[in-house]
Write a protein that binds this DNA or RNA. Structure first.
Length: 582
RNA sequence: UGGGGCGUAGCCAAGUGGUAAGGCACCGGGUUUUGGUCCCGGCAUCCGUGGGUUCGAGUCCUACCGCCCCAGCCA
C-alpha cells in the first residue's frame, strides 16, 4: 500500500480510458464519511491524523460485504496523507473463533490488494488492559458483579416499552465486587454463575444502557491466549476500548451499531480515555445471494456447497476461485457508493465490473463446450494449416498465437440449426458462416443417426479464397463461430456456474434453503479446447470466444487435463432475442 | 404503544435554498472476423405524502405514512 504524502486529501485516482490512450481523473465523488474526515482535518480535530481499522471476528470467511468495509477503511488510509488502517481481529469469543479463519482473512485482504504493514492487532492482546479498566470502573462504583441467571437477567431487562428492574446485586459494596471479580478471573466460579455488569440505567430507553454485561465466564481455550483466561469481555465492552487503545480517529461500522454508540461513549468517558468517533454506514446486500455468516456457515456445514471457497459462494475465497479479480471487486466497491440507507445492489453491477476488467485483460481462446463434428469435404485429408489468431482485440500488445486448422473440426452444437429461426445468422443447411480466424464454410449435408435421428456430423465445404476469415469479393457473412481442430483439440472439463439462488432476495418468502438454485452447477466433461491450453497456469483466466470468461481451477486443474470454471458469461444478445421470440 | 436510523428512476447513488450528476439494468440505432467490446441516443416536469416558509424547496419548518435495527452471558 502506498502512502504518497503529496496526494491531495480527496481521491483523485487516475484511470485509463477504454483505449488506454490517456489518463483522466476518475469521477470519484467521495462520500459522507470522507466529508466528515475532510471537515475534521479542516478543524484539526485529531491533529491531522486519520486512523481507521478493519476489525473482523475470526469466526468465518470474509465475503463481498466485508470487501466493502475493507476497501472503505484501507481506501481512506491510502488516500489521506499519513493515513493508517489497522487490521485487528476481534477475538473475544473463543467458542466461535479459529485460526483457520484468521489465516483466511489475512490472505483475503492481501489478495484484495491491501496491506496493514506492521499494524496487525488482536483484541486478545488487550485483555490485561481491559481487565485493569474494568477494575477501574468497579472502583469508581460503575460496575458490579451480578449473580442473576441468564433468564433472570433477561426478565430484569424489561422490554422495548417497559423499563427494567435493578438487579438485587446492583448495590454490592465496591470491595465485594473487586473480590468477586478477581475470583471470577481466578476460575473459582462456574460458567454462567455470574457476570460483571456496568451500572448505568435500568430504565434507559436505549436497552444497551440497561446495565450491560461486560464480562462473562467462559471456560474454553482461546486460539491465542490458550487457557490464560476464563473470563472474556463482551463485544460492547471491548470494542470501543480497542479503538481507543489504538487511537483510531474514525471508527467505521455498520448501521446496527448505531445505538451501541452511546454505550461505547459512556465507557470511554467514565474511564477518561481517548475517544474515537464512530460513524455508521449501511452494509452491502446483493441480489441472488445471502451474506450472513450464519447462513454461509450453514451452506458449508450442510454440504450444499463444496466449502467456503466454492465458486458459487459470495466469499472472497469463493469469488477468487470462481475467477473474480481483485481489481473488479475494488471497482465494484467504488461504484456502489456509501450511504446510510439500507439497500440491495444488483448482482449485475458486480458482473459488469468483472467483465469490464476481464475484457481488457483476458487472453482469448477457442473452446467448444458441446462439440458438433464438422467434416470439410473439400479440404485435403492429412493437411494442417497453422493460422494466426490475435490474443486480445482490446490490446494488440498481447500478441497473437498459431492455431491448427484441418479437415475435421468441431463447432458448438448451438451454432447449428436445421430449421433456423428468424434472425439466426449462424450455420444451417445451405448457409455460410465464418470460422473465426480461419475460413468461410457452407453446410452441404446433415448426417443423422438413423435410429435416434440425432445429428451426428455436418458435411461442409470451405472457400479456399477466404483464408483468415475474409474475402475480397465483399461477400457478406454475418455469423462467426469458434471451432477447434479434431486432431489437435484437447479434452477439458468445464464447470458452468450459475447463481446459487433463484430469487433476488433469498429467504424473503420462505426459508432461504428453499430458494437454492438446483442447477447452480453444470459440469461438462467432454469439452474440446485449443491445444495451447494444455498447460495453463492455475487460476489463469481466459475469454472463451463468444462464451464467457473462464479460469483454470486452482485445485482441480492438471497439466494436460485442464479444468475450467466459468467465471461469468459474455452478454448474450442472441439469447435475449430468442427469449423475446417465444 | 419505547429508543435509534432511513425514504431521490427497476437497482445503487450525487445533490448542503437557484430550477434533478453518474453507474447498473432496460429500450432503440451505428461499428464489428466474438450476437462480445466500443460509439450514439432514449429512460424522474419530479425527489414517501399533505400542509407551510420563500421571488424560488429534493434541500428549511410541520404533520402524517412506510421500511430497517434494538429485549444474546454473539459480534
Amino acid at each position: 500500500m502506498s502512502h504518497d504524502s503529496t496526494e491531495p486529501t480527496r481521491t483523485t485516482e487516475a484511470s485509463a480510458d477504454k483505449k488506454g490512450n490517456e489518463t483522466l481523473p476518475a469521477a470519484s465523488s467521495g462520500n459522507f464519511i470522507r466529508d466528515i474526515i475532510d471537515e475534521d482535518l479542516r478543524t484539526g480535530k485529531y491533529a491531522g491524523r486519520v486512523a481507521t481499522r478493519f476489525p473482523p471476528e475470526p469466526n468465518g470467511y470474509l465475503h463481498i460485504g466485508h470487501a466493502k468495509a475493507v476497501c472503505l477503511n484501507f481506501g481512506i488510509a491510502r488516500d489521506y496523507p499519513g493515513g493508517t488502517c489497522n487490521l485487528r481481529f476481534d477475538d473475544t469469543n473463543p467458542t466461535k473463533e479459529e485460526v483457520e479463519y484468521v489465516d483466511s482473512i489475512m490472505e483475503d485482504i492481501r489478495w484484495l490488494g491491501f496491506d496493514w504493514e506492521d499494524r496487525l492487532y488482536y483484541a486478545s492482546d488487550y485483555f490485561e488492559q481491559m481487565y485493569r479498566y474494568a477494575i477501574d470502573l468497579i472502583q469508581k462504583g460503575k460496575a458490579y458483579v451480578c449473580e442473576l441467571s441468564p433468564d433472570q437477567i433477561r426478565e430484569h431487562r424489561g422490554t422495548l416499552t417497559q423499563p427494567g428492574k435493578p438487579s438485587p446485586y446492583r448495590d454490592r459494596p465496591i470491595e465485594e465486587n473487586l473480590d468477586l471479580f478477581r475470583r471470577m478471573r481466578a476460575g473459582e466460579f462456574e460458567e454462567g454463575s455470574m457476570v460483571l455488569r456496568a451500572k448505568i440505567d435500568m430504565a434507559a430507553a436505549n436497552l444497551n444502557l440497561r446495565d450491560p454485561i461486560m464480562y462473562r465466564i467462559v471456560k474454553a481455550s482461546h486460539h491465542r491466549t490458550g487457557d490464560a483466561w476464563c473470563i472474556y469481555p463482551m463485544y460492547d465492552w471491548a470494542h470501543g476500548l480497542e479503538d481507543s487503545i489504538e487511537r483510531i480517529t474514525h471508527s467505521l461500522c455498520t448501521l446496527e451499531f448505531e445505538d451501541h454508540r452511546p454505550l461505547y461513549d459512556w465507557f470511554l468517558v467514565e474511564l477518561g480515555v481517548y475517544r474515537p468517533q464512530q460513524i455508521e454506514f449501511a452494509r452491502l446486500a446483493l441480489t441472488y445471494t445471502v451474506m450472513s455468516k450464519r447462513k454461509l456457515l450453514q451452506l458449508v456445514q450442510q454440504g450444499l456447497v463444496n466449502g467456503w471457497d466454492d465458486p458459487r459462494m459470495p466469499t472472497l475465497a469463493g469469488l477468487r476461485r470462481r475467477g473474480y479479480t481483485p481489481e473488479a471487486i475494488r471497482d465494484f466497491c467504488d461504484r456502489i457508493g456509501l450511504a446510510k440507507a439500507n439497500s440491495v445492489v444488483d448482482v449485475e453491477l458486480l458482473e459488469h465490473c468483472l467483465r469490464d476488467d476481464l475484457n481488457r485483460r483476458a487472453p482469448r481462446a477457442m473452446a467448444v463446450l458441446n462439440p458438433l463434428r464438422v467434416i470439410i469435404t473439400n479440404y485435403p485429408e492429412g493437411q494442417v494449416e497453422w493460422l494466426t489468431a490475435e490474443n486480445n482485440p482490446e490490446d494488440a500488445g498481447m500478441g497473437s498465437r498459431q492455431i491448427p486448422f484441418s479437415r475435421v473440426l468441431y463447432i458448438e452444437q448451438e451454432d447449428f440449426r436445421e430449421d433456423p429461426p428468424k434472425k439466426f445468422f449462424r450455420l444451417f443447411p445451405g448457409g455460410e458462416i465464418r470460422l473465426k480466424h480461419a475460413y468461410y464454410i457452407t453446410c452441404q449435408n446433415v448426417v443423422k443417426d438413423p435410429d435416434s435421428g440425432r445429428i451426428v456430423e455436418l458435411h461442409c465445404t470451405y472457400d479456399p479464397q477466404s483464408r483468415g476469415g475474409w474475402t475480397s469479393d465483399g461477400r457478406k457473412v454475418k455469423g462467426t463461430s469458434h471451432w477447434v481442430s479434431a486432431a489437435h483439440a484437447l479434452k477439458a472439463k468445464v464447470r458452468l456456474y450459475d447463481r446459487l439462488f433463484v430469487v433476488p432476495n433469498p429467504g424473503e418468502e420462505r426459508d432461504f434453503l428453499q430458494d437454492i438454485n438446483p442447477r447452480s452447477l453444470e459440469v461438462l466433461n467432454d469439452c474440446l479446447v485449443e491445444p495451447g491450453l494444455a498447460h495453463v497456469e492455475p487460476s489463469s483466466y481466459y475469454q472463451f470466444l463468444r462464451q464467457g470468461y473462464f479460469c483454470a481451477d486452482p485445485v482441480d486443474s492438471r497439466p494436460g487435463a485442464p479444468v475450467f470454471n466459468r467465471t461469468v458469461s459474455l452478454k448474450d444478445t442472441w439469447a435475449k432475442i430468442e427469449r423475446a421470440q417465444r
